[in-house]
Amino acid sequence: MSTVLAQKLWCTLWSAGSLGRFAQHMSNAAHQVSCIGSEEQRVYEEPHVIFQNWLMAAQKEAPQVRPRLACMATVDKSGEPVTRLTSIEEVNSHGITFFTTLGSRQAGEISANPHVSLHFNWAPLMRSVRIAGSAHQLTEEQVRDQFRRFPRHVQMSITHGPRYAAAEWQSRSGFFARIGQRLNTWLGKQPEEIPMPHNWGGYILTPSLYEFGMLSGEKAGRTRVRFRRCLEMPRGTRVGHVQAERQDWVYDSCDEN
């Protein structure tokens, strides 16, 4: 089972573009597993790295679907699920960061119940990712650092609203405005810094589950590979079709018709 599962992960998650070659790779499982080097071994064991690579592929091959935009699910005070679209920023081994107004309904629901789920759907690539975990507020320093990295028009939109930002952008794009900007640059005059709103904040989602889904064609089934965080299970423990190659993640795979 371990050979088949490792080969599935290698073929389905790292196939360069064509999921249709999945069956061909399956017939050569032993050879594929023997060719997995230390870097690839680390990659398929770390779900956040798989997600980073899928995200980069989606941004390159299907930018029109806005790959960083996810459907976020939270839970309100009555226990009902609430969904909205949220744009994510950084993805690393610690989690996934996103930003919002601290006085918003979204922020209030996260403060009351930190359990959050993100769902990414990249239809042109026939791929989807579901990530679930707990969200915790970032420090003011972390939020300010990210705010400074946003483009100026995004800062304007956060501070004054999208209409003001659009009007300001339009005024700066005129002929005389561009001349003035070049003069300021030549004189060494920096544009005025936009202050960050006092109620602007951010969260980091610490995942406890990654679920990768992929289709191999209109009439073919869906393959799902699921990673679950399990700190108690020692390295190498296997129960049924669940495999734990790392101490903190276990994974399984299934095919749906």
Rank of each mutant, 00 (worst) to 15 (best):
S2Y: 10
T3W: 08
V4S: 06
A6D: 06
K8H: 15
L9V: 12
L9K: 04
S18M: 01
S18L: 07
G20T: 06
F22A: 14
H25V: 07
N28C: 12
N28G: 11
N28M: 13
S34T: 09
I36Q: 12
E40Q: 10
E45L: 14
P47G: 06
V49L: 15
V49Q: 07
F51K: 01
F51Q: 05
Q52W: 03
N53D: 07
A57F: 01
Q64A: 14
Q64F: 12
Q64K: 06
R66G: 02
R66Y: 11
A70T: 08
M72C: 13
T74D: 00
T74A: 02
D76S: 06
E80G: 11
P81Q: 11
P81I: 01
V82G: 05
E89K: 13
V91N: 00
H94A: 15
F98P: 00
G103C: 04
S104G: 11
R105P: 03
Q106D: 04
A107P: 03
I110P: 07
F120L: 08
N121F: 14
W122F: 03
V129Q: 04
V129E: 02
R130P: 08
R130F: 01
G133Q: 03
G133A: 07
G133H: 06
S134N: 13
A135S: 11
A135Q: 09
L138E: 07
Q142M: 02
Q142I: 04
R144E: 09
D145S: 15
Q146E: 13
F147M: 04
F147R: 00
F150Q: 08
R152W: 04
Q155A: 03
Q155I: 02
S157Y: 01
S157M: 10
I158Y: 00
G161K: 02
G161V: 09
G161L: 00
R163C: 07
R163Y: 09
R163S: 10
Y164F: 15
A166M: 09
E168K: 10
Q170P: 01
S171K: 15
F176T: 09
A177P: 08
I179A: 08
N184P: 04
T185S: 12
G188L: 02
K189D: 05
K189E: 09
P191M: 02
E192I: 15
E192Y: 11
E192P: 06
E193A: 14
E193Q: 11
I194L: 12
P195D: 07
P195N: 05
G201E: 00
G202P: 02
G202I: 00
L205G: 02
L205K: 05
T206Y: 03
E211M: 06
F212V: 08
G213N: 12
L215H: 03
L215M: 10
L215F: 06
S216K: 05
G221Q: 06
G221F: 00
R222M: 02
T223H: 01
R226C: 07
R226Y: 00
R229F: 08
E232A: 13
E232M: 05
R235F: 07
G236S: 10
T237G: 01
R238G: 04
V239C: 15
G240T: 09
Q243M: 13
E245A: 06
E245N: 11
Q247K: 07
D248S: 09
D252E: 12
D252W: 06
C254L: 13
N257S: 12
